[in-house]
Design a protein around this nucleic acid. Structure first.
Lengths: 123, 123
DNA sequence: TCTAGTGTACTAATAATATAGTACACTAGT
DNA sequence: ACTAGTGTACTATATTATTAGTACACTAGA
């Protein structure tokens, strides 16, 4: 695992997003254990404190829970996971629509661009 | 003009984006003068040094030029402006497509979501 | 009981961003 | 020549993110 972190967003936020993605795409499921703070720190070449911060925030957001001495685990709550996926999708879509509107594209143009792009990529 | 700056991106970068948007949407045209550092600083309630940093970077990117004692002006170069719009659009589109793919959506779903959304908003 | 692995809590140092304030150099217009 | 408005440069400070290092508390399993 080797990642280029953007300098325009705190690394711990970017790490939170990585983990959220793993959860909504079922790479991590309810009850699964996250990598330990130290393991994750080595994997991502990031200071353990930064990982700890990410894990703390994830817990504060109700996405994970921690057991001292045991580890940090994904909450086994399908509603939460569904909500999380919806939130992340909404955010992605909103920022896209707003961005394109700001750039002066109208609905037709946006749909055309996306349709063309989807065909090109074959997704 | 009153803006909520996000805390997850340097303010000078966000200001650069505001100005780039004005350029690609023709609110600012080639040869037009930007607000002076001091005016912009008052408008946005931001320290003059932050504006200066934004203007410096814009010049470094070839988007504006400055004349000491005169002001900062948009480069009168239609190719540059076209390129800028394409760049900004590409970035918006790429991050959207990548985001949705990461979230597990396929092409059909993406198109459906966008189509529905465009109809709802009537844009 | 011991040990390895876990989360957690500190203090400290560094770098980047943003703010604050001052001063200087250049230009246009009077 | 003078003045107002411009970009620019500089020092200093506060805040935040990140790194660095250390230590402690808890848990499971040998």
């Amino acid at each position: 695992m080797d990642i280029n972190f953007s300098n325009q967003m705190p690394i711990y936020v970017q790490i939170m997003n990585l983990i959220k993605l793993d959860i909504v795409t079922k790479k991590l499921r309810g009850g699964d254990k996250l990598l330990s703070v130290r393991e994750m720190s080595e994997n991502l070449k990031v200071n353990p404190n930064t990982i700890q911060r990410a894990y703390q925030e994830l817990e504060r957001e109700g996405i994970t829970y921690t057991q001292r001495g045991m580890g940090t685990f994904v909450n086994d709550d399908n509603d939460m996971i569904r909500r999380l996926k919806n939130e992340m999708a909404s955010e992605t879509i909103n920022s896209f629509i707003n961005g394109m509107k700001s750039l002066g594209f109208d609905g037709k143009e946006i749909i055309n661009i996306i349709t063309k792009r989807v065909k090109e990529e074959g997704i």
